[in-house]
């Protein structure tokens, strides 16, 4: 299984991983439309900064994923590829996954009418190389086999 390896020594704090993530999870997948015409999706990765350290963090797709354990109705589950993903149709926004996640990489999307939606890295199911990895200008995110 491949994961996104985070190399903090190379992160230049440009936030382009977040931009690419937003575009990839938008309806149009067009950068201008995603930011200016649509309801902007939430970036699944976030760049942390504490001078001089910076790094982009996103779901580690843990083998023993605590978020999957914590989910009350199985919405947080492991898909065919082996990555941890959320079933948007069944998630009720109880945020137990957020409480359980040791990396703090699950975000709350509260824009749905009924209830909230846990939002996290889905490892770009439509792409061979995740959008963040491809967008990183300094190879601070690389796709590696583990």
């Amino acid at each position: 299984m491949k994961i996104v390896k985070i190399r903090e020594d190379n992160c230049i704090f440009c936030h382009l991983c977040e931009v690419a993530c937003i575009v990839e999870h938008s309806q149009s997948k067009d950068i201008i439309k995603a930011f200016k015409r649509e309801e902007k999706p939430i970036a699944r990765c976030s760049v942390e900064f504490n001078y001089p350290v910076s790094l982009s963090v996103m779901c580690r797709h843990c083998d023993d994923a605590p978020c999957v354990e914590a989910c009350q109705n199985g919405s947080m589950h492991r898909d065919d590829r082996g990555y941890v993903v959320v079933d948007a149709d069944t998630c009720v926004g109880c945020w137990m996954c957020i409480m359980a996640c040791p990396y703090g990489v699950i975000k709350r999307d509260t824009r749905r009418e009924s209830w909230g939606l846990s939002t996290k890295c889905d490892f770009c199911p439509d792409r061979e190389i995740p959008a963040c990895v491809e967008a990183c200008p300094n190879e601070a995110l690389t796709l590696e086999e583990i």
């Binding site: 230049i12 440009c14 936030h15 382009l16 977040e18 950068i31 930011f35 200016k36």
Partner: peptide, 13 residues
């Protein structure tokens, strides 16, 4: 300004 998406990459760089 139409193309600027306010991602602020330029500001940081």
């Amino acid at each position: 300004d139409y193309r600027c998406i306010r991602c602020k990459a330029c500001v940081e760089q």
